[in-house]
Design a protein around this nucleic acid. Structure first.
Length: 203
DNA sequence: CTGATGATGTTCT
DNA sequence: GAACATCATCAGA
């Protein structure tokens, strides 16, 4: 079952936590890719200097004004794109960054997307490296800003999130977010969530 | 295994 | 002109 609007329009931190264990599904023609979401980060209100929208929206971030469930993708470091899910009601700003997934279906195709190489008995190291980071999972699932900026996970037929049993709190760990040391207010917030002991969680 | 470094170009000041 | 929600690669231990 696809997650519906009600899931996404809640408090951003709850959405970030509850996305753990859910299944990100990407359909590309006849190919189907699925991965368990194992790591997320919440970006919250205007006091959170780590959030791109802390000083108001720009052309890059305009979609964050939309109702929860829309996709916010942005370019970073010239060569990468990061995937976020807009949260909260329309007009309330919040987003969740997906930082890692555990591939469970379409693995060989995802491997080709990721490495531009045939899947041929690869070492475990390379399987883990397929999607254990925010830009890596975007490459594995062949998601691009051009095609997916502003798409709606509640209605789109190329991408959505499937429900799965809720994880227990003792399966979930929490920490500071990665690489936002520049944010004097916000860098110490415990807004990164990940599945304990899952090998696909980023290093 | 760890830490350092360079790649690369859009966005914002 | 600087900053950047990252990754691959390489040197050293």
């Amino acid at each position: 079952m696809r997650l519906n609007r009600d899931f996404y329009i809640r408090n951003t931190i709850l959405v970030a936590r509850d996305l753990l264990g859910k299944i990100l599904v990407r359909k590309e023609g006849k190919k189907l890719y699925k991965g368990i979401i194992v790591e997320t980060e919440a970006y919250i209100n205007s006091k959170d200097q780590g959030a791109h929208f802390s000083k108001g929206l720009t052309d890059r971030t305009r979609i964050i004004d939309e109702v929860g469930g829309h996709i916010y993708i942005y370019n970073i470091y010239g060569m990468y794109q990061l995937f976020n899910i807009v949260t909260e009601k329309k007009g309330v700003h919040g987003a969740v960054l997906l930082r890692a997934i555990e591939p469970i279906e379409g693995i060989e195709e995802m491997y080709k997307n990721r490495y531009k190489m045939e899947f041929n008995n690869p070492p475990r190291r390379k399987l883990i490296n397929m999607s254990n980071g925010p830009a890596k999972l975007v490459m594995a699932m062949n998601i691009s800003k051009n095609e997916f900026y502003g798409a709606d996970l509640v209605t789109d037929n190329r991408i959505w999130v499937e429900d799965a049993p809720k994880l227990s709190l003792d399966q979930i760990a929490r920490s500071k977010r990665i690489n936002i040391d520049y944010a004097e207010i916000g860098r110490d917030y415990l807004l990164r969530f990940y599945v304990k002991d899952n090998p696909y969680v980023s290093k």
